[in-house]
């Protein structure tokens, strides 16, 4: 039996979600004169100038490159350390495991604002200020706990008999883990990677505090559009659209795990 549901509600809600995004795309395809002087629901004078500005000016596109570099580093670090830890949490009980698991959660929940200043001083004092690795490590604060929790959620779904059989067959732990176990939770690793990527990609406060020039993320570059001659709305909108693209590209593949990922693997 299917309970009646009204497509109208869904349509209205999706409209509410999409109209502001449409407006951003609309803006990005207009010239600045058109944005400020006239008002239209679609670009009358379609232009790609705004995108050209971003893709040809190094100070703009380097923002994307920087973001991608530190996000990738962060995903690699997070997954590398989280995989064995999640396995330990899902398979063994050991001294202090519950406290440790809880402590990880508190870091996922910690407000970045609390850490902004100490991070700045910590990374400045070890000479890592304005490097990609600094931002990548800083984002580990919430991404490592996130990855551990998500991976643990997936790993506990794998029956323990598989481990035992593999050991009886003479597999060593590292070989078993890479050859047998990781393929079994491949979707979990994918989801964890996606969420690490996403949370590192959307975060601005820490990445802005820890960088000035060389590792400046795109999100911080976007504040540049305020200049003496007023706002460059078109370029700002185009930069915004380009930050949405990576998420929009991969979301289709993880669509069934979005709830699970946000709920830290607990749904």
């Amino acid at each position: 039996m299917r309970l009646r549901y009204s497509p109208l509600v869904m349509t209205l809600y999706l409209l509410f979600l999409l109209v502001p995004i449409y407006w951003l795309v609309n803006m990005s395809l207009k010239t600045n004169t058109e944005i400020t002087s006239s008002f239209s629901l679609y670009p009358r004078d379609l232009t790609l100038r705004n995108y050209v500005v971003i893709l040809t000016d190094p100070s703009w596109y380097m923002g994307y490159v920087n973001s991608i570099i530190y996000v990738t580093m962060n995903v690699v670090i997070s997954l590398t350390v989280a995989l064995p830890a999640a396995y330990a949490f899902s398979r063994y009980s050991f001294m202090g495991d519950k406290h440790l698991f809880f402590w990880l959660l508190t870091n996922r929940m910690a407000p970045p604002a609390v850490f902004a200043l100490p991070f700045f001083q910590l990374y400045s004092s070890v000479g890592l200020f304005d490097t990609h690795i600094a931002v990548a490590l800083a984002h580990c604060l919430f991404n490592v706990p996130l990855a551990v929790w998500i991976l643990e959620g997936f790993m506990r779904g794998v029956p323990k008999e598989i481990d035992e059989t593999a050991y009886i067959d003479g597999y060593s732990f590292p070989r078993f883990f890479v050859k047998i176990f990781m393929p079994l939770i491949a979707s979990g690793i994918g989801v964890a990677a996606f969420f690490c990527f996403m949370f590192s990609w959307v975060e601005l406060l820490l990445s802005r505090t820890l960088t000035s020039v060389n590792a400046k993320p795109i999100a911080a570059t976007m504040t540049r559009t305020v200049s003496a001659s007023g706002m460059d709305w078109g370029v700002l909108a185009a930069a915004g659209v380009l930050t949405i693209v990576p998420g929009a590209l991969v979301i289709y593949f993880v669509r069934n795990y979005i709830a699970k990922g946000f709920a830290l693997g607990r749904v």
Partner: peptide, 21 residues
């Protein structure tokens, strides 16, 4: 997919979208 879209937009771009909107 469409519902998840706003969740994946960088926080400052969410701000920018509504600032412009």
């Amino acid at each position: 997919v469409l519902m998840a879209l706003p969740l994946l937009i960088p926080f400052n771009v969410v701000g920018t979208i509504w600032q412009i909107f």
